[in-house]
Structures are given as C-alpha cells and as structure tokens.
Write a protein that binds this DNA or RNA. Sequence first.
DNA 1: GCCAACGTTGGC
DNA 2: GCCAACGTTGGC
Length: 174
Amino acid sequence: MKSKSSIPASKSGKYWLVKSEPEVFSIDCLAASPAKTTCWEGVRNYQARNFMRDEMQIGDFVLFYHSNASPPAIVGLAKVVRAFYPDPTAFNKKSPYFDPKSRKEQPTWGMVDIQLVEKFSQPLGLDFLKKVPELSKMTLLQKGSRLSVQPVRPDEFDTVIRLSRQLAKPVAVF
DNA sequence: GCCAACGTTGGC
DNA sequence: GCCAACGTTGGC
C-alpha cells in the first residue's frame, strides 16, 4: 500500500521562513492567539516586505524560527491565511514599528496573517541544521544572513519537515 | 555584552 | 552616485 506523504505541499509551490525573537513573540504566543493566527506586523526591511507583497500567497507554508534565542531554532510550521495588507503599526506613534515617512495614502509597510499548523515536538536547533548537507545552501544558514522573511526551496522545506518527523520519533533504546 | 555583517541615511 | 557614519540583527 502506498503511504500518504506527511510532507505538506503548498499550492503555489512556495515556502517561507520567518524569524521572531521569542522574547517578543514566540511560537507559544502564536499557539495562544485567537484561531492560532497573528498578523506579522513590524517588518521594516524592503526585501522582506517585497517577498510578502509580491510572492506570498494564501496557503503557503511558513517555517517559524526563533532568533536571538538559546538555542536559535526552527520551532514549528505555520501557513499564510491572509495576503499582504497595510501594517497599521507604521502609523502608530506609540508603536516601536512607527515609521514617520510612511503615508497612509500610500503605505510603505504591510503584513500578512499566519496561522499555526504545528509546533514541532523537538526544535530544530541552528547547530543541528548546519550539519545537514541538504540544507547547506539554505538562506537561513548563510553567513551574515539577516532577512526576517525569506524564501525556502521546496527540497529544503521537505528536508526540514522530514527531520522534524524523525526527531519526533522515540529514540531506540538497546 | 561583544562584534561581524548588513542595511540605511545623508553630506558631498 | 559614492561612501562614511550610524543603526540593527543575531550568533556567540
């Protein structure tokens, strides 16, 4: 019998990774959010914005990464549930994400909504990921890579999901 | 807390 | 358009 693949496939064929500092917004915050959904506010980098605006589509899968964490790790999977729309925090003077140059008539910044699909039972730590040959080209693992919203190649996405499944299995004891 | 790498700003 | 100064990111 053919077994059904447990690797999720996105309709668009596109996959992403977003970074968040767990001190600011962790995967547990996402899990505790209404409908396990949050708006991805505060992106203030043009390249990251352009990915969200020009390429992200509803249904795309998004790896959730904890940066500035110990250890830094991919901690779960989410998906896009709302396409790009203006980020109101850019107009809020009290927000840390306030941008005085952004005009309401023509907003500079935007965001998408993402919904939690699953929190990995074992985080995939940065040091672990670096040892995986199939991931050697992954944007996240390149030196000096700081993009907070970045594309992930389909084969890399498959590898990450497969590793998360492997790590979730009980360790054999002899 | 340090600091390398990167992005942005602004004078010229 | 160049590039120095500055600010931010993020691993360690």
